[in-house]
Design a binder for these strands. Structure first.
Lengths: 249, 249
DNA sequence: TCAAAATCTGCATTATTTTGCGTGTTTTGA
DNA sequence: TCAAAACACGCAAAATAATGCAGATTTTGA
């Protein structure tokens, strides 16, 4: 058995059982414990696992790297955005705001979609730069650091000149009375401009955003064409939203 | 049996069994282990398999994540860019081009530096969005996908209006006669604009870029104020560059 | 067609890597 | 605190690789 095979074996067992024990591995692979220890040290150096006294455990998520974006509730978000894939067609002009839900959406966009996408979110642009058939335009401006999006007059100016078929807007908060609201003033302005520029407005969010509010109004419910949540469209908690005329996916 | 046939045989066996062992192959094909090893080295160079001690295994496709940026020779690049840290001061206006060397530089910029930085590279902007004291401005435009930078007229227009104290330009190729040259026309234009906009022009690169050339000229050696390489500034291979009046760090 | 050049292959030699074992140290848990 | 378990380190044997060289084979170009 090759060393590389052994390493694979160890990694597989590690993921399956959350941990590996040096003595068990030595027995299972019929090798000395020293060899196993050396293997574990190597894998530890490569940051593939964390060696501990007696064996090794899975590496704990490393949040210090900017490029390692941690999306909370990624699985749920995948289910939400999957519903919206049917809204995509070839040759559309699309605007995408920031937010982790939109990032998950960007990941799921099919590789053969031919479209033009405008965005002002760094992670979303990075993700979309994978897609060979998408014309990607980044809207520049001053960076809002934590959200990793550009904001300000530069962004507004560019957005207001776009004629888009559809826009995907992340939502901080939504309720029947105020509609879509945001915590930041500048972001709310940018989103207003996005809505103005687009024929169809889509917002995707999980149901815990429902019936909450933030200081800065983006738009009325009426201005949204479609909302996409994790709930069944006929769910009673969406009753009032349905009444307001929004299409619910 | 032709070598090409052998390679096919090896690849087939590899896919079937997940691994191949040098000695087995030598036996099966009735050839010396040396020949098999040479074959495996060739296939490894073509990235068709991964040679390991004792044989070879399938290549693991780890590159699927956009956010997992692989910087070749990162350690060497760290040493290069560390020399350039002394050029940074509070309250400077800085322009940074793309490239992995500049990305490494961005990582090493001290957290307490107060400055304004313009860039048109997604990874560099992501990295700098970490820094609490930097005013970060992203220069928007059409994305060039593989390099993850914006290009085109939008970029030129913004850059040409900046008045920067210093700019850091990545280099594809440099030589004494043509100066800085680039493989892409559009990138060369953007870099020209950067140089125009900056009081001081700095270029960082490893010595293997020295004495090479690409189709599109960016600028003369004279227009560079400072170059930073992995070599000692007094290294003989930098002699001609020194003569041309560039400051070498 | 033929000779020179390029390529392929195996062998011998040398270098490197892997592995188990002995020895001494560190960690663990009662 | 103490004994057992786990570990680290150096060493040596075995396995595997790299390298130079020579003979064989193929390709090239006149």
């Amino acid at each position: 058995m090759l060393k590389a095979e052994r390493h694979k074996f160890i990694m597989t067992k590690l993921v399956e059982e959350q941990k590996v024990v040096t003595t068990d591995l030595a027995l299972a692979l019929d090798l000395s414990e020293d060899t196993i220890r050396r293997d574990l040290n190597e894998l530890d150096n490569k940051k593939l696992l964390e060696k501990v006294y007696g064996g090794a455990i899975l590496v704990t998520e490393n949040t210090s790297d900017v490029f390692n974006i941690n999306i909370s509730g990624e699985e749920e978000k995948k289910q939400i955005v999957a519903k919206a894939l049917s809204l995509l067609h070839d040759d559309q002009v699309i605007i995408m705001s920031g937010g982790s839900t939109n990032l998950v959406f960007a990941k799921l966009i099919p590789a053969d979609l031919k479209a033009t996408i405008y965005t002002y979110s760094l992670p979303i642009a990075m993700q979309l730069s994978q897609h060979p058939n998408i014309d990607l335009i980044f809207i520049g401006g001053k960076m809002q650091k934590n959200a990793m999006v550009t904001i300000g007059m530069d962004v507004i100016q560019v957005v207001s000149k776009i004629k888009a078929d559809i826009c995907f807007i992340g939502a901080s908060s939504i309720n029947v009375k105020q509609g879509l609201t945001e915590i930041g003033y500048e972001i709310s302005i940018v989103k207003k401009a996005m809505i103005e520029a687009s024929d169809r407005v889509v917002s995707m969010f999980s149901s815990d955003k429902l019936n909450t509010k933030m200081p800065h109004v983006v738009c009325d419910l009426k201005q949204l064409d479609t909302i996409v949540t994790n709930l069944d469209p006929r769910d009673p908690s969406l009753e009032e939203y349905r009444k307001s005329g929004v299409f619910i996916l």
